[in-house]
Design a protein around this nucleic acid. Structure first.
Lengths: 211, 211
DNA sequence: TTGACACGCGACCGTTCGTTCGCTATAATA
DNA sequence: TATTATAGCGAACGAACGGTCGCGTGTCAA
C-alpha cells in the first residue's frame, strides 16, 4: 500500500520476466496484471528497456545490500552442528523468498543476452556463496572445527552442490522438500568428512568461551 | 553438405534460440542466417512452434543416444589418476562441443517456460551426471579405489561442483581455461579426500587382473 | 513433351508489438 | 478560484511479427 506505482510495476515486471523472459513479456499484460492500462505505464518508465534496466539496478542494489559488505557476513559457527543449521536456514530462506527465487530465474533466462545479467548470475550462482563460505571455513579452521585445508576449495566443494539443489527447487518447486532434505544430508556428509571430531578443539580454538 | 535443409534449419534454430530464446528469435532472421527467404522455412516446418518441438525432439534423442542406456557408461577407472583424466576428458568435451554448449544454454533459458525443457534441464544439469558417477564410484569402491561410502552422495558431491564450472564456461567463455583448471584442481582434491591411498587395493578388489 | 513434385522466392495478410497522443479526473499549491 | 502537476484512460500509430499465397524454376519419371 505504501508502495509507489513504480515499485509495483517493477514487482510485476520481475514476476513476468522471470517466467517468460524479457522478450516473452509484453507491456499490455504487464500493465494488465496491475489493473492498469498499457499507456499508463509510460508515465513511470520511458520504455520497456528502461523497466528492464531499473529492475536490474534494483537487483544489484538488493544483492549489494545483503551480501556486498563483509559486515553482513554471518558469524563463524562454533560447532559443526551449527554450520548445518546455519546452512539450512540460508537454504530455506533463499528457496522460499519469492523475490530471490524470481531473481535467480530471471538471471538464468537472461544471462546469455545481457551483460549485467551475466555478471550478476556468476555472482549469485557461484562466487558470492563461495567467497562467503571461504571466510566462514577459514574461521572454523582457526577454531579447530574443520580439518586444515584450502578454505576456498572446501567452500567451493560445499556450496556448489547446495547451489545445484537450490536451482532444482527453482526449476521444479514440487521437489522442494526433497531437495532441502538432500541439502541437509549433504551438509551432514560434508561435516562428517571435513569436520574435526575429537574433543581437543579447545586447545586449538583461541577465542572460544567456556560453557 | 550431406545435411538436409531440415537439419540446417534446426542447427540455425539451436544457434539463435540458445542466444536469444524462443520468444526473442524471429523467423526472418533465422531464415536469413541460412541465406533463405522467410517463407521457404514453411516448406519444412508448419510453424515456429514446430521448429521448437523438432529441436527438442532432437535434443532428447541426442541425449538418449549418448547417455540413455547403461552400455554407454564409461569403464570404471582402474586408478584414482584415471578418474581425474576421464573426468577432464569429459569436461573438455562437454565445454567445447558447440552443440552441447548451445543445448545447455537453451535449457537454461527455456526451463521455466517449457515442460520438456524443464525435465531435460534437470537431467542434463543434475541427475544425469550424478547417476552416471554413482555407478562409477560404486565400481571404484568395489575395486578398493574409493573409501566405502554412499556412492550416490559421493557422486553428487563430485559432479555438482564440476557442473557449476561447466555452467560458468557457458556463461563466460573467456574464463574457460581457468574453469577447467579449477575443475582439475577440484578433482584432485576429491581423490585426495575420498581416494584409498594405501597399496592394499588388491586384497579388496576381486575382479582385478594381475599385471 | 508432359505432368507431378520439391523447393525457393517476394508480396502480402492479419495480428500484436512498443509507443504516442489527447483527453479527463484528482489533488495539491497559490 | 485559478493553476499546475500527476496519473490514469482509450484510441491510434508505425513497425515487426508469424504465417499464407501464387509464381517461377529445376528435377525426374513416364
Amino acid at each position: 500500500m505504501a508502495k509507489g506505482t513504480k515499485e509495483r510495476i517493477l514487482d510485476a515486471a520481475l514476476e513476468m520476466f522471470s517466467q517468460y523472459g524479457f522478450a516473452g513479456t509484453n507491456i499490455r499484460e504487464l500493465a494488465g496484471s496491475l489493473g492498469m492500462g498499457k499507456s499508463s505505464m509510460y508515465r513511470h518508465f520511458e520504455s520497456k528497456e528502461e523497466i528492464w534496466n531499473a529492475l536490474l539496478d534494483e537487483l544489484v542494489a538488493y544483492y549489494e545490500a545483503r551480501f556486498g559488505s563483509p559486515e553482513h557476513l554471518p558469524p563463524v559457527p562454533n560447532s559443526l552442528e551449527e554450520l548445518v543449521t546455519m546452512t539450512m536456514r540460508m537454504v530455506d530462506f533463499t528457496v522460499h523468498d519469492e523475490k530471490i527465487v524470481k531473481s535467480r530465474k530471471l538471471l538464468s533466462i537472461e544471462q546469455f543476452r545481457d551483460e549485467r545479467a551475466r555478471s550478476l548470475a556468476t555472482k549469485h550462482f557461484l562466487t558470492g556463496l563461495t567467497e562467503m563460505f571461504t571466510r566462514l571455513f577459514a574461521g572454523m579452521m582457526d577454531k579447530g572445527l574443520l580439518r586444515r585445508d584450502d578454505p576456498a576449495m572446501l567452500a567451493f566443494a560445499y556450496t556448489a552442490p547446495i547451489s545445484a539443489l537450490i536451482h532444482l527447487c527453482d526449476r521444479e518447486p514440487e521437489k522442494t522438500a526433497e531437495a532441502i532434505a538432500q541439502a541437509e544430508a549433504f551438509s551432514r556428509h560434508f561435516i562428517k568428512i571435513y569436520g574435526v571430531w575429537n574433543n581437543e578443539q579447545s586447545s586449538v580454538g583461541r577465542d572460544q568461551h567456556a560453557k
